[in-house]
Design a protein around this nucleic acid. Structure first.
Lengths: 219, 219
DNA sequence: CGTATAACTAACTAACTAGTACATACATTG
DNA sequence: CAATGTATGTACTAGTTAGTTAGTTATACG
């Protein structure tokens, strides 16, 4: 009798809490997969870094691949939720573009794990996204917002009329993703850390300028 | 005696050819590492896809990591050699930028394995580049060419005078790398293949326009 | 209060995986 | 043509690794 510590306040086994166990596994797994990739991450190590055991990974996520997909889903739904909150309808079109670009810039900078998971998923030819029902049909609020901004900008004669929202989204993403995703090789070759805080504002402004000069070209 | 086939013309063991063996291993390894990442690639499988044995990998490359580094070195020296050949000194600055951007665009499109290796190396925090003497001190001819173009453009009053060559290189790289590296997740989410040949010219022109509008802004 | 079920643990296993020991054949050179 | 080093192949091994088996404990609920 009394295998467990009687009543120790600190080292209590945290009782039973399915949700806490599940989310702790997911949080640790996200870090591990983002750090080492799908093949490089170790199920045993993920388990060791939680307060539970490996068996629970199989209990809740059905295996390594299921866990990886869940981590991806959580990361993507996170940025989608952020995008949903953005309200740029009341802003001048140019200012709205700036706001949207800055949002992407800030998100990517503060969520390197997300960017790394995306890189890793591309190495896997987006095979897991295709397999996930959640991710395959996830709407893109930022794209809708962008479409409306471009529409307004065109109507006001401020923006050129031959640009596609997806292309604009791509320009912004390319810049912001590259800065985070390719930070290490870039720094090794050019001896310049693109994430250096001293240069942060410079790049943050640059992406807006770049896109806006393009959108307003000849006007 | 006579363990080997006496004289069969087709299935001859290709005699002995150290250079051929070495380069065949390297070619197969490049494909495997680019396809599956460092942790995902299998030494046994690389060996099986060559006409030699696993033993030779250890003989020539000293192990999995040595092989991976050699593959990286080969990929990087390839693009550096290409850049060395580019001659844009005789062109109008704007046209020179277009030429340079197109060169990057074309190279990245036709060398997806290189782009994938770069992504993979970033997942590994560029640890292997740092370790490689060849890669750590590799000059960047494209950057020198770009510096001279910008200089000329500034002198002619065509370009703004507050841009850094590394930043311009980054804009071009970001766009071209993103298009190839993030092709799969982008396509899964936006249902648009950025490498579709029908859209190729569109994107190829777009990156030049984007950079040039920025460089000539307000002029 | 006792029992069904959800939450959880420890120990095990079969398959894999990077790397090695050992043997040997070929080619070059004196 | 002997001998010496380079190039190559076979078989093996020690350590991992994803996944499983066989349970135990806590909690909710009648």
């Amino acid at each position: 009798m009394a295998t467990q510590t009687p009543d120790s306040p600190a080292a209590a086994p945290a009782a039973r809490d399915a949700e806490r166990t599940r989310s702790e596994i997911l949080a640790v797994a996200t870090r591990e997969f983002a750090d080492k990739g799908f093949a490089g991450a170790r199920v045993d190590e993920i388990a060791a870094k939680t307060r539970t055991t490996k068996r629970m990974i199989y209990y809740y996520f059905d295996g390594k691949e299921g866990l990886y997909i869940s981590a991806l889903e959580q990361a993507y739904t996170g940025i989608r939720a952020l995008e949903q909150q953005v309200d740029v309808e009341h802003l001048d079109p140019a200012e709205a573009i700036r706001r949207l670009a800055a949002l992407t810039f800030d998100h990517h900078e503060s969520h390197p794990d997300f960017i790394r998971l995306v890189s890793i998923e591309n190495i896997h030819y987006a095979r897991h996204i295709a397999r996930s029902e959640i991710l395959a049909g996830l709407a893109n609020p930022a794209l809708d917002a962008l479409s409306r901004i471009l529409e307004r900008g065109r109507a006001a004669g401020q923006f050129r009329d031959d640009v596609d929202p997806i292309d604009v989204h791509m320009m912004i993403s390319a810049f912001c993703v590259f800065r985070t995703a390719n930070r290490y090789t870039f720094s090794a070759i050019f001896k310049r850390d693109m994430l250096d805080p001293a240069r942060r504002d410079h790049y943050r402004t640059m992406i807006s300028d770049l896109v806006l000069e393009y959108l307003t070209a000849g006007r």
